[in-house]
Simulated assay, not measured.
Amino acid sequence: MSFGIADAVAALRRGEAIGLPTETVYGLAADASRPEAVRRIFELKGRPADHPLIVHIAGASRLDAWATDIPAAARTLASAFWPGPLTLILRKQAHVPDEVTGGQATVGLRCPAHPIALDVLRAFGGGLAAPSANRFGRISPTTAAHVREEFGDAVPVVLNGGECTIGIESTILDLSSDTPRILRPGMISRAQIEAVIGPVADGVAGDSPRASGTLEAHYAPRTPLLLLPRPALLDEARQQSAFGKRIAVLALDTLPDGLDGLALPAAADAYAHGLYAALRTLDARGVNLLLAERPPEDGAWLAVHDRLRRSAAGAGAGDDAP
């Protein structure tokens, strides 16, 4: 069944969660102002209640509805990068439900760069809490079909916005303290941010707020996954095959001769676009082990490395793993 904007808005007003396309990944979206609607997201995903959600808004003009003590840098960055894959962590307004923030004094805000998501936000008129539309810790969805595979009829309304153009989650920048700090890398890089607001720190600090997608194990297939440079990958494939194990490979640029699997482009943005779909495809093959070729180490690949590392850390765990 095909659904439109009116169907999605009606479902949101009923307190339901919907499948929402964005440029990064598909989100499981619900009314961020209604605690019971937000709790439905957690129930569907099996997500820990203290793990905060990102609120999607229709534009920078909605910042003050959700955040307070907003620094000038936030408005400057929103002007530079919104709509787009940048989440800003700010001090929350008092009315923002604890269900959204995990009980913290901060809230993550983003304006997505997808026409359907923006149409829904404008028609709905409020903010939408929208983590990735998958079971907690599992591979993020980049098509409407992936959302259906995850939830079936439990999420009746899924809007089909095609493949996500970026394919991995947004950069998260904490602006709630004196030092701007990147908590999760994305396709908006540190260099791009610093070109707009000056120096920023990198990596979670001891006093950083909790943020989406920063657990060590995340974005994970059910099949065990090793991340290796090509020479070590080839050796591992030979050894595992000798023990009778079935192997599938996620290679960079070209698939090694004689091995089953997929190859993704040797450009960071194109690789990111195809990463989660490739992991889902390989995970469904029923092999014993996935081997992913380690990409280049330069800055353009930072977000891809982050996702692959967390995928490997969580791979092979059961559905109820934290």
Rank of each mutant, 00 (worst) to 15 (best):
T179P: 00
A144Y: 00
C111Q: 02
Y219M: 01
G203K: 02
A211E: 12
G186M: 07
A133S: 09
I116F: 10
V100P: 01
G102V: 09
Q192T: 05
A94V: 14
V96K: 10
G162H: 05
A94D: 15
P112M: 10
N160R: 06
S177N: 11
T101Q: 05
I172S: 01
S132A: 03
D153A: 14
A195E: 15
C164D: 08
A154P: 00
P224Y: 11
G162E: 13
P199Q: 04
A211Y: 09
E169H: 06
E99A: 14
V196M: 02
R122M: 13
H114M: 10
P131R: 07
D174V: 04
E99M: 00
G167M: 06
L159M: 00
R222T: 14
T106Q: 10
L175D: 11
P199E: 12
S176K: 01
I188K: 04
V155P: 00
S189R: 07
T101L: 03
I193W: 08
D153H: 09
H95E: 15
I168E: 01
A130L: 07
L128G: 09
P115G: 10
E216L: 13
R148N: 10
L159Q: 01
G152V: 00
G125F: 13
F124T: 10
R190C: 07
P224G: 11
T142K: 00
L90M: 06
R148F: 11
L88N: 07
R138C: 12
V200D: 09
E150A: 03
M187V: 01
A113W: 01
P185M: 02
I182L: 14
G186P: 09
A191I: 03
G186A: 04
P180T: 09
G103Q: 08
G102W: 10
A191C: 05
L90R: 04
L90E: 12
V155N: 00
A130R: 02
R184H: 08
N134D: 13
P97F: 09
A113C: 04
G103S: 11
H218V: 11
T223Y: 06
A80C: 09
K92Q: 15
G103T: 07
A205Y: 01
R135L: 07
